[in-house]
């Protein structure tokens, strides 16, 4: 069953087509990555899924039924632009926003205590939000999103502005929620997070979905052959390989990632490399998502 199902959904603001004939299926119990450059239409799409705006045309189904206002109670949303009441205390904030998601008094108290404990911010419950540090506010924002134990989490750039420690905490909770059977839809610019977390992805550009499917399948379909070389020696390997039909994707000190184009002979390239440096590692790797992303965006622009 699809938790989120968009069929030919379009949304226009004035004359600007933000979302153009988009169809997306998010299977239940998976982490779904919605990718795309700025202005691709990710946030506009997410706002329709969360019921903030209505599509001009097309259909949206949530949890297998046509979208209804009370689906909002089953959805937790973390907007890209974080927003909390600055002058409310942590507890009042959670009480109000939780009540608006349909939580009764008893479950409110129970859930608030659980999550404040989980993030170890119980001592801050009576503090006003604007007295919290940035990282603490991010934690609070995340608690607001999961407080009512939603079936579907919609996270717009969940890791932006987080330090590595807090990123790790959030990542862990996202995986934990998935393992509990919840579905997560997240948009992000961070390809390593997608590779680490996502089961399925859809790539948007200029309001359209240009790529979608299981992460592995998307990579296979791309047909890219990528090679990573790790070497020692001071020789500039990149210059020596330049005349081969390859495209350098990444170059670090003593490490090179390149794409083999048509007619590239791996044996010859390896031989050339061996002549100039000591090879520590030579491996055929699956294309990083970033490469696929850049290609797809370039192709549609």
């Amino acid at each position: 069953m699809s938790v989120v199902s968009l069929r030919s959904v379009s949304k226009t603001y004035g004359t600007y087509k933000a979302v153009n004939d988009v169809s997306i299926e998010v299977p239940a119990g998976c982490i779904f990555g919605l990718l795309g450059p700025n202005g691709a239409g990710k946030t506009s799409t997410i706002r329709m899924i969360t019921g903030i705006t209505l599509p001009d045309s097309g259909e949206i189904s949530l949890f297998g039924e046509p979208q209804r206002p009370d689906h909002q109670n089953m959805t937790g949303y973390m907007p890209e632009e974080r927003g909390l009441y600055r002058k409310l205390t942590v507890r009042n904030q959670l009480e109000y926003l939780g009540a608006l998601k349909g939580l009764d008094k008893v479950s409110l108290k129970k859930n608030i205590d659980y999550w404040l404990d989980r993030f170890e911010i119980q001592n801050w419950a009576k503090k006003k939000t604007n007295e919290l540090s940035k990282g603490m506010q991010q934690k609070l924002q995340f608690i607001v999103t999961v407080l009512h134990d939603p079936q579907l989490l919609v996270l717009d750039e969940p890791l932006s502005g987080l330090d590595p420690i807090n990123s790790e905490i959030i990542n862990d909770i996202i995986l934990e929620e998935r393992n509990k059977g919840r579905s997560i839809m997240l948009s992000t610019h961070r390809m390593e997070q997608v590779e680490q977390l996502c089961d399925e992805i859809a790539l948007m550009n200029l309001g359209k979905v240009v790529l979608s499917g299981k992460l592995r399948e998307v990579k296979e379909r791309s047909g890219k052959k990528m090679v990573r070389i790790v070497y020692s020696g001071s020789d500039n390997l990149m210059n020596r390989l330049e005349h081969y039909p390859i495209r350098i994707a990444e170059s670090h000190p003593n490490e090179l990632l390149f794409e083999m184009k048509a007619g590239a002979d791996p044996k010859q390239i390896l031989r050339t490399a061996l002549d100039s440096v000591d090879i520590i590692k030579w491996e055929l790797v699956e294309p990083p998502l970033k490469e696929i992303f850049l290609d797809a965006v370039a192709a549609t622009n």
């Binding site: 969360t50 903030i52 909002q72 949303y77 907007p79 927003g83 909390l84 009441y85 600055r86 926003l97």
Partner: peptide, 17 residues
């Protein structure tokens, strides 16, 4: 204006019409 300025309004409208 305060709700709009603090961006909490987007969160609110994902819960309430």
């Amino acid at each position: 204006i305060e709700e709009k300025n603090s961006r909490v309004i987007e969160l609110l409208s994902s819960s309430v019409k």
